[in-house]
Every structure is written in C-alpha cells, then in structure tokens.
Amino acid sequence: MSDQQVFAGALLAAEPSCPPGLTAWNGSDPGRRFAIYRNNVVVSLIDALADTYPVTQELVGEEFFRAMARLFIQANPPRSRMLAFYGDRLADFIEGFPPAAAVSYLADVARLEMLRVSAYHAADAVPLTPAEIAPLLEDEAALPTARIGLHPSLKVLFSRHAVVSLWAAHQTTDVTRALAAVDSDVAEVALVLRVGLDVEISRIAAGAAVFITGLEQGIAFGRAAEQALAADDAFDLAATLGLLIRGGAITTMIIPRSATS
C-alpha cells in the first residue's frame, strides 16, 4: 500500500489509528495531531450533508442525523471533488438503515431535499413566454403532436408519503403545529422547479404528475394529456399547463415539421 493509501484509510476508518512515519517536534504522540485531519474530513462531510438535508436532520434530530451521516460517509465517501451533490445516495442508505426504519417517510424527504439542491444548480434555460406559446394555437390540428421541452431544473417525485406537506411544515415558524395537521401516510407527488433564482416545491395532483413525466420522456402533448386523464379522472390540463407556463417550466414547444400541412 502506498503512503497516501494508508493515510486515507486511517482518515475514514471507523476505529481511530495513526499512520506510521508521522512526527511531532516535541516527540508527542502524532496520533493526537493526526486526529485533526481525521476529524476534519469526517466533520466537514457531515456538515456538507447537513447543509443538503436540513429537514431530514430536523426530523430525526441532530444527534441521530450526524451519527447516521458518519456511517454513510464511511460506506460512501465522496467520489467527486465538488461537494454540491455529495450524498445523493443518502436516501437509499436510509432505506437500508434499520435504526431509521421507524420514520418511514425519511428517505423520501431526503430525496426531495436532494432534488432541491439539484434544481438550484441545474443548467439555465430561457422559458417561453405566453406570447411565444400563443402562435401554436393557430395550427390546432397539429397541436397534439407538439413536443414540450421542460426546464432542466424540473423534477417530479412520487411518494407514498406526504412528502411535500412534511417538508413544507418545516419551513414554518411553528413546526410542531404545522406537523400536527399533516397525515404522513397520504401519498403525494412533489414538483421541484427553479423559478428564476428560487427553487419552488409544489404538491401536484396525480394526473398532473403523469402528464409532466410523459413530457419529460418526450411523449407528444396530446398523448401525454391522454395518459394523464387515463390515470386521473380529475386531471385538469388547463391548470397544469398554467402552472408550468407560469413557473417558466416550458422552454421549448415545437410542432414537428411532418405534422404541419
């Protein structure tokens, strides 16, 4: 093993140890000094996770979160030199982590928080204005074939839990009171979207979610709307389009050339 491999191994190991060959001017135990590095690596990474997952941390408490984060870090140290998206696998880790099993919705809340970070840093794209979309109405017959491109920050999260309501309750000043009104067992779908410079998290209806994921997959406007209606009788196409247009989520809307006459 190389020197740095030994050093790196000792930094991340569960049990403290000190690599050979380290010295201190006064002959004191270099292990005490090495612990500064060991601590700094782990604590800085725990802090990075706490920054990304504030609600996840609040749900289980700081002590539990940090202890869990430490285990996550030992099993999943960063592979990228940029930490912005570090911990994108924390939700999967939580699902396989027995001590967190009592909080059944924790993994999905973590997923939502990571989507929020992704949306924050996602690529920029100029949204279409209502005035730019309006001319498409002139070719009504071809409208069902239109391909709608969505903003790079947009993501949909399906959860068996009230993931949006749980998250939103933690944005209020009286979390306890807000949480009392939430039934965590109600399934919700989250829409994550950066509007201007702010990431917004919305709860959307099942039909809207099917419609938007259809568009994400490149399905034509008409077909995506039909799928949404099939999945949800209450699907409100006008309201869903209004939400997307207003949020600047539609960046392209093109009627394929072959469809125009």
Partner: peptide
C-alpha cells in the same frame, strides 16, 4: 470528535430519531 467510536452492529447503536418526527401524526 474524530476519535469517538461509531459502531451500530447489534446493540451498540443506541441512537433513536428524536427530532420533529415525534410530532408527526400517523
């Protein structure tokens, strides 16, 4: 902090969630 032991094998892991999840209705 870097020297504290962490091991959740068996009963050694004693931490339980004690945050706002305790206030959630289910």
């Amino acid at each position: 902090a870097g020297t504290s032991k962490v091991d959740y094998q068996g009963n050694a892991w004693t931490a339980v969630p004690t945050g706002s999840c305790e206030k959630t209705v289910s």
